[in-house]
Amino acid sequence: MMTSIAPRRAAKAAARRGNLIGWLFALPALLAYCGFVIYPLIVGAQYSFYRWNGVGPSEWVGFANYLRVFTDPTLLGSIRNAFFLIAFFTIIPVCSGLMLATLIRSMKPGFASSASQTVLFLPQIIPLAAAGIAWSWMYAQTGAVNQILNAVGLGFLARPWLGDFQTALPAVGLIGSWVLTGLCTVLFLTGIGKIDQSLYEAVRLDGASWWREFFTITLPGLRQEIAVLVTLTVIAALSSFDIIYTTTLGGPGRATLVPGISIYRIGFTQSEVGLASAFGIVLMVLVLICVLPIQRLARAGER
């Protein structure tokens, strides 16, 4: 009896030591996460219940800041703009990345395949601020976009794209599509590489077309990659700031105003820290409402 208990105790002690060592390795990252994410989140939630200019005394206002977020037409308009950008930050990059990855995968390995992946991934290397400035030059009245339109006989479409109330938001959204398409393509290429090639050989022996191969093998095999990319791109759309700040600053008027720009203006320009904090908390909740169902669907698909 004693001989069977001793090994069990030794195994439990070894497991406890392993857990302790694991926590010690994770402790620096955990402390950094608590210090730079959890603590600011708690403080921001606390500020959201006060009227405070960031310097003087604060005044308790309860849920008044949240009520203002949901009743102010300007703030609600910025939320609508952010959801509109999902079409450009999520739908276009994910769909185009999926098609491009499938086409590149069908190419013979070599220079053309490698060069395609490199060119598509380049926007991820360029800082978003630099990308926004470069695209603002191209969208100008005398920029590359209008010059190309004039060259191909479509000069009647030329306009100051970022200065037009009708085209400013789609123009900014296309910048986001350009930036994120490369990331989607590379991740999909990695996912396709993990799919068992014997599945493709089996459907080809059955005489399946390219479309049937895509919908029966490729698309189901990329379920996790699609969930990850949709999550990342939806977050990028709802929390967009860099591109819009460097191109339009939310203009013309409020045509490209998004929550990130609104929070920046309210907190640092209007010195309404409480309202900015409340809007930030609302934005976080909106992101969770959009992202959690995606994660749930992805996990359900694994079963």
Rank of each mutant, 00 (worst) to 15 (best):
153 G>M: 10
163 G>V: 02
246 T>L: 13
160 P>L: 00
210 W>H: 12
172 V>A: 07
185 T>A: 08
245 Y>W: 15
242 D>G: 04
157 L>V: 10
201 E>Q: 09
125 I>M: 10
217 I>M: 10
230 V>D: 02
236 A>I: 03
149 L>M: 12
211 W>K: 07
155 G>W: 11
175 I>Q: 05
180 L>F: 15
243 I>C: 02
237 A>R: 08
224 Q>S: 13
174 L>P: 09
118 T>E: 05
176 G>A: 03
219 L>V: 14
143 G>P: 02
190 T>D: 14
165 F>P: 15
219 L>P: 02
249 L>R: 14
170 P>C: 05
184 C>F: 06
214 F>M: 13
244 I>T: 07
183 L>M: 08
131 A>E: 08
178 W>L: 07
177 S>D: 11
184 C>R: 03
167 T>Q: 11
135 W>A: 09
239 S>Y: 00
219 L>A: 09
158 A>S: 15
129 A>W: 04
140 A>V: 00
208 A>E: 04
160 P>W: 07
205 L>Q: 07
224 Q>K: 13
126 I>E: 05
117 Q>C: 04
245 Y>C: 04
153 G>H: 10
242 D>V: 00
219 L>Y: 01
239 S>M: 09
188 F>P: 05
247 T>K: 01
124 Q>E: 10
171 A>K: 01
117 Q>W: 04
137 W>Y: 12
145 V>D: 08
235 I>T: 12
169 L>W: 03
176 G>I: 00
150 N>M: 10
239 S>C: 15
119 V>I: 11
128 L>N: 14
238 L>M: 07
138 M>K: 01
166 Q>A: 15
177 S>R: 09
139 Y>C: 01
180 L>R: 09
144 A>Y: 10
177 S>Y: 02
158 A>W: 07
119 V>S: 00
116 S>L: 12
218 T>G: 00
199 L>W: 11
176 G>E: 06
191 G>E: 10
121 F>P: 06
178 W>Q: 04
179 V>R: 12
234 V>Q: 01
155 G>M: 05
193 G>D: 11
165 F>N: 13
146 N>D: 12
132 G>W: 05
247 T>Q: 05
173 G>K: 13
215 F>S: 14
216 T>P: 09
210 W>G: 09
182 G>D: 02
216 T>I: 05
144 A>T: 12
205 L>N: 14
242 D>W: 00
190 T>A: 15
206 D>M: 10
185 T>D: 14
157 L>D: 11
248 T>L: 07
174 L>G: 12
135 W>N: 07
212 R>C: 11
122 L>D: 06
235 I>V: 09
128 L>V: 08
147 Q>P: 03
174 L>F: 15
190 T>G: 15
196 D>A: 03
226 I>C: 04
172 V>H: 08
223 R>A: 10
178 W>A: 12
187 L>H: 08
156 F>E: 14
164 D>V: 02
194 K>E: 12
152 V>I: 15
242 D>N: 05
136 S>E: 13
